[in-house]
Design a protein around this nucleic acid. Sequence first.
DNA 1: GAAATGGTTGTGAACGCTAACATCATAACA
DNA 2: TGTTATGATGTTAGCGTTCACAACCATTTC
Lengths: 340, 340
Amino acid sequence: MAGQPSKRITLHDVARLSGVSSQTVSRVVNNYPYVSEDTRRRVLDAIQQLDYRPNRAARSLATRRSCMLGIVSFGISYYGPAQMMANIEQAAKLRGYSLAFSAINRVALDEMREAIDNLSDLSVDGLVLITPTTGIDVRELVGLCEGVPFVQIDTDPAARVPSVVIDQHYGSRLATQHLIDLGHSAIGEISGPLHWFGAQARHESWEQTLLAAGLSPVMSVEGDWTPAGGYAAAHRLLDAGAQFTGLVVGNDQMALGALRALRERRLRVPEDVSVVGFDDIPEATYFEPPLTTIRQNFAALGEQSVEYLVALIDHPETPVHQRVLHPQFIPRQSTQAPAR
Amino acid sequence: MAGQPSKRITLHDVARLSGVSSQTVSRVVNNYPYVSEDTRRRVLDAIQQLDYRPNRAARSLATRRSCMLGIVSFGISYYGPAQMMANIEQAAKLRGYSLAFSAINRVALDEMREAIDNLSDLSVDGLVLITPTTGIDVRELVGLCEGVPFVQIDTDPAARVPSVVIDQHYGSRLATQHLIDLGHSAIGEISGPLHWFGAQARHESWEQTLLAAGLSPVMSVEGDWTPAGGYAAAHRLLDAGAQFTGLVVGNDQMALGALRALRERRLRVPEDVSVVGFDDIPEATYFEPPLTTIRQNFAALGEQSVEYLVALIDHPETPVHQRVLHPQFIPRQSTQAPAR
DNA sequence: GAAATGGTTGTGAACGCTAACATCATAACA
DNA sequence: TGTTATGATGTTAGCGTTCACAACCATTTC
């Protein structure tokens, strides 16, 4: 059954075989009405027989649509963004969209411009932007996208562009209030890098929740999301002489590093210090001790953002807003009431 | 400075403005020779002035190339695949390729067919397939790709198709031999799922290395790569009454779970049991105790695979082979000589 | 019985680009 | 001086689709 030198099969080949015009084949392929059942079947047969597959470049040229979504992602090798990627792909596929992907190494205008240009050269129908840090003015962003609908994920909670975010203020309040409710009054923090919106929000809310409870925030130091950063930050906290029995840490990875640092300082968790993390990575249950944390629903984030984006593509008049998801408190053994 | 209703700028617009034919503009854009410095400059000016950007659909239609690579990935939310993704993207961008991305949920022919069809509809110039498990016959795979060059990553070490793999036999030998060298003679294993090539190879090599040293393998149980799986596997090992002072675990995440299980059984690491993991995830240094492990160079894997793929695209006569990378032994505190 | 209706099909002409060829200077050679 | 090379440009015809329109047929309507 060897084949011809594999010339591409086109609409016309199908048309010839089924004895109709190529336009009619096009109608069948695109499920247009006004094709008789009889011809439709004939065409479908021919398509199957020839194993015809439409050429998307040609279609895209003619229609100015590509059925592709572009995704610009920062920090794809971090847990959160990787989860989002996976879920966005899933959601896009479900709706018949392919995915093109471009990573950036800094959230900055030049990198973002390059990535977006890259993707819009592919005439993507829409863009998902994972931009968890400051560095790009929203107005500039709108400029970059030039008419291509986009949804921002995990971004400025005050952004007035289509976006889906997790309410980090709420999450941090959950974490801090949990410690307060347990009876802690000296609560420190290891934050994420404060130019990340999420880190900033969690930091603010840590402070506000304490003040609202009539407590004064102990010290906060800035980490870099990594276990190594959390380890260093915890040591800095202790070196500075901070006294605390509760510690809110910006993510689970840093919490892991912090756990080690505390141990090295002969501080037991949770007996001497209670620790709360963020994210609920699969490892968190198996930390020593298992980590109380605030779970982020990355799957929902991906799903919602694609749903929103597709709505924007199909109905440009869809109102601009920010969808807000809520994280969930997961109690484990790293927190308990303070010794008295 | 408001604009027209934003008609797309084409080659012809640039041609008109700079007073040359559109073919000449095309030559400039594609950096062809035989354009005088003078016209080149004029065209370049016009391009800049109009902010012209070539339409890739049209180009792709005319050239039958897309300058896109497709990547089919299994388990993108695992550490390894996510790292590969990130590095592949990096390497592709460096060579002027965009990336389209499709995930599969099982390594099976139907899922793979859908993913590859999807991508080849986009007329990708080449495919990177991350297929770490059995489930697809290589010959079937070649059929699916129908002429599109592809490189397989992290796959069957015996595959006779273009592929880049990490030598897992070697890695496992490093791990096991390390324990033997320390003086351990009772060495157990928690393997990854054995339909993963990497897990299978590590498992075999664990066994062979022991036999070669005149030791008989203690027990091996199968985990699922997750901390929870490692935890359960360790308990199963102990429940079965296995006696061991050394434990080789298929990845760092499972090792984390195993560490907890051992602790629950009042077994100290490394005093009572030495543990070795695989991957060297960023968390591994901060486990309790820090984990001795075998580092996989995922960056190199991504880079090499793209390099190979691009070579296959540019020079179809490039010989088919398997590039083999070697993992690296990272000693930490989870291993020591057995108590006597 | 003519006109109007509505389903069904076909006919160019785009879409924006490049490949292949044709053309025309100019310089280089005999 | 004529012939060749060679650089620099333009012309034409696709690439595989879809869009807008025209055409055709069988009914139905007045």
